Simulated assay, not measured.
Amino acid sequence: MKTHRLRIHGRVQGVWFRESMRMEAERLNVAGWVRNAPDGTVEAVIQGPASAVEALIKWVHTGPPLARVDRVEIGEADGVYREFLKRTD
């Protein structure tokens, strides 16, 4: 089981990024959460089997069609997650 914290930079707010990521995470059976950050980035914590987490990280580097991902910061995280949530906080 892998758990990572992501910060996605670029044109990632207002382009359906969070909902698209939630759908992709559910498709891959990855748990965690995603939210818009006040600085214009998108933050996420993702958890699941290593291959599924790596597939979601690969997806995040492109995102949905209207997004422009400039950079993805990847760090370690902890916690236990049972589903993938689109947070509004």
Rank of each mutant, 00 (worst) to 15 (best):
Asp89Ser: 04
Ala77Gln: 08
Glu83Ala: 14
Arg35Ala: 13
Glu76Leu: 08
Glu26Trp: 03
Thr41Pro: 00
Met21Arg: 11
Val80Ile: 14
Arg22Val: 14
Ala50Arg: 09
Arg7Cys: 07
Glu26Cys: 11
Thr62Gln: 13
Arg11Val: 13
Tyr81Thr: 06
Ser20Arg: 12
Trp59Ile: 02
Lys2Thr: 14
Ala25Gly: 03
Val12Ala: 06
Glu54Val: 02
Asp70Asn: 03
Arg27Trp: 01
Trp33Met: 12
Glu43Cys: 01
Ala44Thr: 04
Gly14Ala: 01
Phe17Thr: 05
Gly32Cys: 10
Gly79Leu: 04
Gly79Glu: 03
Ala25Arg: 09
Lys58Gly: 06
Thr3Ala: 09
Ala55Phe: 03
Val60Tyr: 01
Pro64Gln: 04
Ala44Leu: 06
Gly75Ala: 11
Ala37Thr: 12
Gly75Ile: 08
Phe84Gln: 06
Met1Thr: 11
Phe17Cys: 04
Arg7Lys: 15
Tyr81Asp: 01
Arg18Phe: 05
Arg71Gln: 10
Asp89Trp: 03
Arg82Glu: 14
Arg5Tyr: 13
Pro64Tyr: 06
Glu76Ala: 05
Met1Asp: 08
Met1Phe: 12
Leu85Val: 08
His4Met: 10
Gly75Tyr: 02
Val12Phe: 07
Leu66Glu: 14
Gly32His: 11
Phe84Arg: 07
Ala50His: 14
Leu6Met: 07
Trp16Phe: 15
Val34Arg: 02
Val12Gly: 05
Gly32Ile: 13
Asp78Val: 02
Glu76Asp: 12
Arg11Ile: 13
Val15Trp: 08
Val15Gly: 03
His9Gln: 09
Ala77Arg: 07
Asp70Leu: 05
Trp33Ala: 05
Ile74Leu: 06
Gly48Asn: 06
Val30Leu: 10
Ala44Met: 07
Lys58Trp: 01
Trp16Lys: 06
Val15Ser: 06
Gly14Glu: 05
Arg68Thr: 10
Arg87Leu: 15
Met1Gly: 12
Gly48Ala: 10
Lys2Asn: 10
Arg5Cys: 05
Ile46Tyr: 01
Trp59Glu: 03
Arg82Phe: 13
His4Glu: 10
Lys2Cys: 00
Arg5His: 15
Arg27Gln: 12
Val12Glu: 04
Phe17Pro: 07
Trp33Arg: 04
Gly10Ser: 10
Ala52Asp: 14
Leu66Met: 11
Arg87Tyr: 00
Thr88Val: 11
Leu6Asn: 03
Ala37Cys: 08
Arg87Val: 06
Gln13Leu: 05
Leu66Pro: 04
Met21Thr: 15
Leu6Tyr: 08
Lys2Glu: 10
Val42Ala: 13
His61Asp: 09
Arg87Trp: 03
Gly10Gln: 03
Arg5Leu: 05
Val12Met: 04
Gln47Ala: 14
Val53Gln: 00
Lys58Pro: 00
Val80Phe: 07
Arg22Leu: 11
Thr88Phe: 15
Gly79Tyr: 06
Val12Tyr: 07
Arg7Tyr: 03
Glu83Met: 09
Gln13Glu: 10
Pro65Cys: 00
